[in-house]
């Protein structure tokens, strides 16, 4: 019922699944460098504009960012439980775990939307009429450029993750996964946890560093 089709270039289903997982790790390595360029931008820009970055960080929504961190960490935990369930052949519990993970992901995106709306209404979008004036305005605008680019890129990754989870649920309902064959669940789990890791780095860079003042 749930045996994966083995393509011609693989010796066995196990070989095919191991290759899929190694490939996912390679893809995540490229993603590390993709976000790494963003972290470098923060590092260098903050070096030249420490006061502007600190002032801008104090204008971010710490409560929403903190709730989102707890939500995302919990979603990774729930998805990892889902992977554990399918490893024991319990597809129904895995589907439930996927639903809870997706709900937590949607909660994250919704809170992010609320935060962006507030940022717009508080005139924190770089450009004319920017809320922070004075000598720190330039640095603060660079900070908010980083903030919007980083959070939008992260949210796009979240949306891709939600799409993948929906695909997993659809396949699991058709009986595509079993204790012996569930590599796609593991691959999506790696991606979802990676998106969590990216947020764990972004959270202090955006909300915490510079906040004490």
């Amino acid at each position: 019922m749930s045996e994966a089709h083995v393509h011609f270039q693989y010796d066995s289903a196990a070989h095919q699944e191991a290759t899929a997982l190694d490939g996912m790790w390679l893809f995540l390595a490229t993603e590390v460098l993709f976000f790494g360029a963003l972290f470098l931008t923060w590092l260098v820009s903050r070096h030249f504009h420490p006061q502007g970055f600190a002032e801008a960080a104090r204008h971010t929504e710490l409560l929403i960012g903190s709730i989102n961190t707890a939500v995302l960490v919990t979603s990774s935990f729930v998805f990892s439980c889902g992977l554990g369930f399918i490893e024991r052949g319990d597809a129904r519990s895995m589907i439930r775990a996927c639903f809870v993970t997706a709900l937590l992901g949607l909660a994250f995106i919704t809170l992010k939307g609320v935060e962006w709306t507030k940022d717009f209404s508080d005139h924190l979008v770089p450009g004319p009429g920017f809320a922070i004036a004075g000598a720190d305005s330039g640095g603060a605008q660079i900070f908010f450029c980083f903030y919007f680019v980083a959070t939008v890129l992260h949210a796009v990754h979240m949306l891709v993750g939600l799409g993948l989870i929906a695909w997993l649920v659809q396949r699991a309902r058709r009986g595509a996964f079993s204790a012996a064959s569930h590599a796609p669940v593991e691959v999506v789990g790696l991606y979802w946890s990676f998106v969590d890791v990216v947020w764990l780095v972004l959270y202090p860079l955006i909300y915490l560093v510079g906040r004490p003042g």
Partner: peptide
């Protein structure tokens, strides 16, 4: 995971440090 996946993870950290 096996050696290949670990190498990819280590390479990611290494090249991130080089980049930064």
């Amino acid at each position: 995971y096996g050696a290949i996946a670990r190498c990819f993870a280590l390479a990611a950290v290494f090249w991130l440090l080089v980049l930064l």
